[in-house]
């Protein structure tokens, strides 16, 4: 009886319902987060572990490879934001308009890549971008009478490969996000705009863009996170974590390299903490300027 009363009381019920989430959040997020921060101040050896102060962080400051990794991740994040927001939005608007026939087919075509494993698609892209003359892109180059390229050995050509893989995979997903945002816009707004003689561009600019803002912010936030934490794409494209002159190394790749490949968990945790700080800072700035963090106006 008491239990029932306890569960049904207005005060406790919300906590009871939220409990599964809270427990998993504490166990799988808060606890590892705190222990990672602690570990980042330690030298974790095979047999013994000792505190070494901020040595890991000081080493990060001098570590040229880490700097390359940060720059690579940043660049990738920025470029994916540039590519993965306007284009999916455009596709979503097209899908929502009467211009496109057989929408279901197009949606499926754009979404299917997201269902394939990165392991498989990365391998396929690696073969396509092979420097050997039998790689698809080099066959294309030969057909165009151009010299073959060592795609994955040069910074900018490998960037193309990475971005192509990323866009191929995520455009459909982001498009669906935008599409759901578009569906929630009241059609009567467009009708009244039509009556007022608004052009298509004006409707897009003054109705679609402002009303789809929550979706855009969400997509921007996850794109930033995904861009900064990219790893598997690069891992598969170079069939391992080592790329020539580290052109494909990302922050998470470096974390993996230090923590798993070199078994230096303390240093890897420091890398992880820095990544977390960078990710949080960027997103806080972004959310602040979007006004998301301001109190809702009533």
């Amino acid at each position: 009886m008491k239990v029932k009363k306890f569960l049904c009381s207005e005060k406790t019920a919300p906590y009871v319902f939220a409990l599964p989430f809270l427990i998993s959040f504490v166990i799988f997020w808060i606890y590892p987060l705190i222990s990672a921060i602690i570990m980042s101040f330690q030298d974790i050896g095979a047999v013994s572990t000792k505190f070494i102060g901020a040595k890991n962080y000081l080493k990060l400051l001098k570590d040229g490879v880490f700097h390359i990794a940060v720059l690579n991740s940043f660049e990738y994040m920025l470029l994916t934001c540039v590519l993965l927001i306007p284009f999916p939005l455009l596709y979503a608007v097209l899908m929502d308009s009467r211009l496109v026939k057989a929408k279901g087919v197009w949606k499926a075509v754009l979404y299917i890549p997201a269902l394939t494993s990165v392991v498989i698609s990365g391998t396929l892209f690696r073969l396509m971008f092979s420097e050997y003359k039998t790689g698809q892109l080099n066959i294309l180059m030969t057909m165009l009478n151009m010299p073959t390229i060592k795609w994955l050995k040069v910074k900018w050509t490998s960037e193309i490969a990475l971005l192509l893989l990323c866009c191929w995979r995520w455009t459909g997903v982001n498009m669906l996000y935008f599409l759901s945002g578009l569906k929630s816009i009241d059609k009567s707004l467009y009708e009244s705009a039509d009556i007022d003689g608004a052009t298509t561009w004006q409707k897009f600019k003054f109705i679609t863009i402002p009303l789809i803002k929550p979706t855009s912010i969400y997509v921007l936030t996850i794109t930033i996170y995904a861009g900064l934490s990219m790893f598997l794409e690069s891992f598969m494209l170079w069939s391992g974590n080592s790329s020539p002159n580290n052109i494909g190394l990302t922050i998470v790749g470096y974390l993996y390299k230090r923590g798993i490949e070199k078994n230096d968990m303390g240093y890897a945790c420091a890398v992880g903490v820095v990544l977390m700080v960078i990710g949080l800072t960027i997103n806080f700035i972004q959310l602040f300027f979007n006004g998301t963090l301001k109190k809702e106006e009533d």
């Binding site: 987060l33 934490s229 790893f231 990544l275």
Partner: peptide, 23 residues
Amino acid sequence: SVNAPEGSAATDGAAAEEGTGSA
């Protein structure tokens, strides 16, 4: 991974399944 902020599901353990080690 613990420290990687959420993002693409790509960061999970699948990487380990295909390993060749350094050349």
